[in-house]
Write a protein that binds this DNA or RNA. Structure first.
Lengths: 129, 129
DNA sequence: GTACCGTCTGTAGCAACTACAGACTCAAGC
DNA sequence: GCTTGAGTCTGTAGTTGCTACAGACGGTAC
């Protein structure tokens, strides 16, 4: 499999695939005589894993840990569960923050009387107290 | 006012103040004989504006537009309202995305039977279909 | 005078890519 | 056989919004 095929099979950009290789997430594949990267199914599996974890919002560092853990099949999956739970907490915090922000911004917009900037409540809210 | 005072008055780091100056968001202030930046109340007002807009999640580009608009007091505040509404939509989209993510991650975590990695449903979910 | 803090400029780093530049390879059409 | 276009190669620089130095200088308290 050439890099373009691997990329489109995983909805990834070619540059991103090379980037993952550079940072050590994806092992360097064999090369053809023309120095093209030649991927096998194990690369496809690994890249799929990375992309799905990324889609779930895991950082690349978390993905790296998950990959390491997934390589040791005999180990307890406690650590995996832990990483996922920490991430879930992060998401909950983000949702909370954004919801509070949304409320505040909604209030600010709601106060707009659509006059001139001089009377604009939005600008006023942002200005000095 | 020296840069440290301005920074602490607006809960900003000194480096960030200098950064805002460098990218043209904050006008370069006068200098003392020792080449220290000397700020006035207009700088305080402008930096407060920037920080509050940032707290509401506006990008620096949006802040730049809001600052330009707020300088023309006679103009209608339609444009201001527009920027704020676009931003509100962005936030709504982000909340939606995160909520969907949260649901999915929660499902994945819920499937974990706390055995070995070989049977781990979390790893399995991430792996190839 | 001597600590110790604050300030100065300039540069490099963070996450996670993305977008080039300039050279090479390959497959299809004429 | 030759050209054209697409794909690939390496390497570097850009993105957002800061943050963290390094190394030099200024100001103040004891």
């Amino acid at each position: 499999m050439k890099i373009g095929e691997l990329a489109s099979a995983t909805a990834t950009k070619v540059e991103t695939v090379r980037y993952y290789e550079k940072i050590g997430l994806l092992p360097p594949p064999a090369r053809t005589s023309a120095n093209y990267r030649a991927y096998g199914t194990e690369h496809l599996a690994r890249l799929s894993f990375i992309r799905r974890a990324r889609d779930l919002g895991f950082t690349l560092e978390a993905v790296r840990e998950l990959l390491t853990l997934s390589d040791d099949k005999a180990q307890s999956c406690e650590a995996v569960d832990g990483i996922a739970r920490v991430h879930l907490n992060d998401i909950d915090r983000k949702i909370g923050d954004l919801t509070a922000l949304r409320r505040e911004l909604d209030r600010v917009i709601g106060s707009c009387r659509h006059g001139t900037v001089a009377d604009c409540k939005i600008i006023e809210t942002l200005g000095p107290r």
